[in-house]
């Protein structure tokens, strides 16, 4: 019964979106993390999604689920700030902060949460349909 596969499909979508939300949370939380060395600065992380086609035995119905292929780190230049009194300042008086675009991250967060909600809606609709199917002809 292919309706039960929907639970796997929507579940994989939810878990991928949740990982995306996690990376956004990391990026936002580290937006103000300062480092002495340019190379030690936090780099924004972004998940790359990928479709997994699972061939089903017997008939040719395949199931397309989602998974996170990898989490990419951005390679952006750190922003130097001249703060000679900062305890982490280097010899020249600079500290480095990550180039994280908080507004873009917030927009990405809204997009991820909408996609998550869509998957939940699919799940609850299918659950309702399945329960009704089980009660067919009763009462």
């Amino acid at each position: 019964m292919s309706v039960f596969k929907v639970f796997d499909i929507a579940g994989s979508g939810m878990s991928a979106q949740m990982l995306r939300l996690n990376t956004i949370a990391s990026n936002l939380a580290n937006a103000d993390t300062i480092a002495t060395n340019e190379n030690d600065v936090y780099q924004a992380r972004h998940p790359i999604f990928e479709t997994v086609m699972q061939a089903q035995g017997g008939n040719s119905d395949d199931v397309a689920t989602v998974r996170v292929r990898e989490i990419m780190q951005e390679q952006t230049m750190a922003i130097p700030q001249y703060r000679p009194n900062h305890p982490l300042a280097n010899d020249e008086g600079f500290v480095f902060s990550p180039a994280i675009d908080s507004i873009a991250e917030m927009a990405d967060m809204i997009s991820a949460s909408r996609s998550y909600q869509n998957n939940i809606e699919v799940l609850s609709t299918v659950k309702e349909m399945t329960l009704r199917t089980l009660q067919m002809g009763q009462g």
Partner: peptide, 9 residues
Amino acid sequence: SENIANADT
């Protein structure tokens, strides 16, 4: 549901 789950893939 596959389409909705893969909306960002």
